[in-house]
Amino acid sequence: MLTELKPPVETATPVPVAIAPEADPATGTSGVAETAPESDNAAAAGYAGVDLASPRRGPTRDWRGPLRSGVLALLSLAIGVTLWHFASVNKLSYGINFAYVPPPADVLEATMANLADPIFFVHIGVSMQRVFISFILAAGLGVLTGLLMGRSSAAWAMIAPYIEIMRPIPAVAWIPLAILMWPTEESSIVFITFLGAFFPIVLNTVHGVRQTPEVLVRAVQSLGANRVAVFRHVVLPAALPSISAGLAIGMGVAWFSLLAGEIISGQYGIGYFTWDAYSMVRTPDIVLGMLTIGMLGTLSTAAVRLATAPFLVWQTRAR
C-alpha cells in the first residue's frame, strides 16, 4: 500500500505546518520559534507536509482514476522490489554496497519466522507501550502548557526561555544525561520519547491559541459569556486544528525519539530488535525492524488523526 511509504510524521492536512508559530506575522509571536524545524532532524521530512498518497489535482470522481493509480502504484512497487532483488543477489557494489542487503525473499522469510515467534510481539508491545505512555504525558502537559502560554503573557515570559533553550536539543542528545538522571532504563527511554513529542505539541497549541479571531471573542462576550465560557467556546475550539496538527507531529517525533533511546539502551523494543539484528548480523531482521517501525509510526499517527477528527467536523463540512 502506498500509505506505508509515507514518512510516519507526514502532515496530511494542509494545516499550519504549524510547528513554527513565529512564522505567522499576525500573531506577533516572538522568541520560541526562532530555530527552524530542521533541528528536529529526522522528523523534518514530515514537516514538509509532503503527502505521497494524494496527487495535487485531487482524486477523480471516476472509479477508473483510483484504479489506474492503484495499478500504477503496485507496478512501481513491483519494479522497486525486483530491482532490490537483483541488486542484492548479484551483490551489486558501486559506491553503495548491496552485498549485505538481504534480498526481499529473505526478508519475507524472516517476517514469517518472527511472526511465529512471541518475542517479536513483545518487542512491538514494549515499544507501543512506551510511546503510548510518553505521548499521553506529552499531550496532556504540552496542551496545558501551550494554553497557558497562549493566554497569559506572564506564563509566556516565564516558560518561553526554557523552550527556546531545550527545543533545539535533539532527543538523542539527552540520552546520556537521561540515563544518569532517571532511576531505571525504562523511565529514561520514556523521558526521551516524551521530550520529542512535547515541544511540537506545545508550540502548535500556542500558535492555535494566538490565532483566535478577536471578533469571535467579542461576539460571545456580547452574548453573555464570561472568561471561562470564552475560553471553552472560542479559544479552545479555535486552537483545536492546530493542536491536532501538533499531536500528529508529536506522535511522529515520539517514535523517532523512542527508536533512538531503544537503540542505545534496553533489552526490548522494536528499536532494540533492529539494532540487535545488526549486532548479530541477522540482516533480514534489520529490514523487517525498519519496516515495522515505519508501519507503527504511520498507524499511530493515523490513530491520533482519527481520535481528533470528531472535534474537527466543522472544518471539513464546508469544503
Binding site: 471578533v215 469571535l216 467579542r218 461576539a219 456580547s222 453573555g224 467556546h233 475550539p237 483545536l240
Partner: peptide
C-alpha cells in the same frame, strides 16, 4: 446580552 451585537461578517462560531 442586553445589547445585542451584529458584526460586519465572520462572527459566527464556525465550530
Amino acid at each position: 446580552p442586553d445589547r445585542g451585537m451584529v458584526f460586519q461578517q465572520y462572527s459566527l462560531l464556525p465550530w
